[in-house]
């Protein structure tokens, strides 16, 4: 009973969950390290880290996933935003983003040829073959963590030779993108500037595989 009460009292602030941090930056050598040490200094591990170009020419985008409380995430974001070459940082829960991870699976071609069920399983799981050789076949699937994980356990009995999963990429549901923000950014203080994007909000299901 007492424990329950305690749980009730625990606010969102105390609950750790997955957060997607999106960082818009200039492209400068060393910036990755500058951002990474903000986490490592506090002994926080990355669940996932991806760097890529963004929708704006010469502006880079980091997608970082960590499991932490919102309070910690907010503080981390402010520390990141403080870096000279960082333009803007957003953080979102998984509900607020559309995210994907890609995975590759290498399986013996003989096994697949022998067991038709494997191919069916793969198809059912949205995987497709990217390379088929005599000795092995490489499948690819894209989806949420559970989906790519699921396929591992499915393939394990058939002798999964190699597996790799990419970092997460995430698109913010209610973001207008950075092209418009850039102008606003140069003028205004961050914080009160998120504009609802109805299409993407409604498009939630469309984008889910």
């Amino acid at each position: 009973m007492a424990e329950e009460l305690n749980l009730l009292k625990m606010s969102n602030q105390d609950i750790k969950e997955e957060f997607n941090i999106t960082v818009y930056t200039e492209n400068q050598i060393g910036l990755l390290n500058r951002i990474a040490i903000i986490f490592t200094r506090r002994k926080i591990n990355f669940d996932s880290l991806n760097t890529s170009p963004s929708e704006v020419d010469r502006i880079h985008r980091f997608n970082i996933v960590i499991t932490e409380t919102e309070d910690v995430v907010r503080k981390l974001c402010r520390q990141i935003e403080k870096q000279v070459e960082v333009l803007k940082v957003y953080y979102h829960t998984n509900e607020d983003v559309i995210w994907q991870e890609m995975a590759l699976y290498k399986v013996s071609t003989d096994v697949i040829a022998e067991k038709v069920s494997v191919e069916r399983l793969l198809r059912e799981n949205g995987a497709r073959a990217v390379v088929i050789r005599k000795d092995y076949t490489v499948f690819e699937t894209t989806g949420h963590r559970e989906e790519t994980d699921n396929l591992i356990s499915i393939l394990q009995p058939y002798g999964l030779i190699e597996f790799v999963r990419s970092a997460r990429v995430a698109i913010i549901k209610d973001s207008e993108g950075f092209n418009a923000k850039l102008r606003e950014f140069e003028r205004l203080e961050p914080g009160e500037d998120v504009i609802e994007n109805e299409f993407l909000n409604d498009g939630d299901k469309v984008f889910t595989m």
């Binding site: 930056t25 070459e85 203080e189």
Partner: peptide, 12 residues
């Protein structure tokens, strides 16, 4: 001026 650097937040 550096595009990505805002030395002072705007006073609200």
């Amino acid at each position: 001026h550096i595009r990505s650097y805002r030395p002072k937040p705007i006073v609200r």
